[in-house]
Amino acid sequence: MRHISLVLIGTLFGAGLALSGMLNPSKVAGFLDLFGVWDPSLAFVMGGGVVANFIGHRIVTRRGAPLYEAGFSLPTNQGIDARLLTGAGLFGIGWGIGGLCPGPAISSLLLMPGDAVLFVMTMLAGLAAGRILTSGPSARPAPQA
């Protein structure tokens, strides 16, 4: 169950992405196109996701530990620094151009193989580059959110 649960939770996430419209790059861009003909749908995705998680998170983390691990791995870094702003800013530019963020890129791999494979390969290269760039001796330990 420990392993099956991961596949099932991943499936629920992938299904949620597909149903919500997040796998459709032009719909994502339609949401980001505030100054054009605006499709507000994705605000409902973020709203529904955050509220569902917000309500349950408090109940879940009140437990001493998760079901299959010794403890919760919650991010400890609370700093707001140039690195956070640079990274988030860059991510938004790529998201705006491609209409894909990391989750939907993965979940659309088998649906639009050509585009998604190219996007995911370059995204993984970017992830590796970014991690090397930020893992120097001067870099603070930053948990991946």
Partner: peptide, 17 residues
């Protein structure tokens, strides 16, 4: 498309999410 993919990967690694 590949430029967008690389920037998404780079940005999310630097910005931790």
């Amino acid at each position: 498309l590949p430029v967008a993919g690389f920037v998404v990967g780079l940005g999310t690694a630097i910005g931790s999410g």
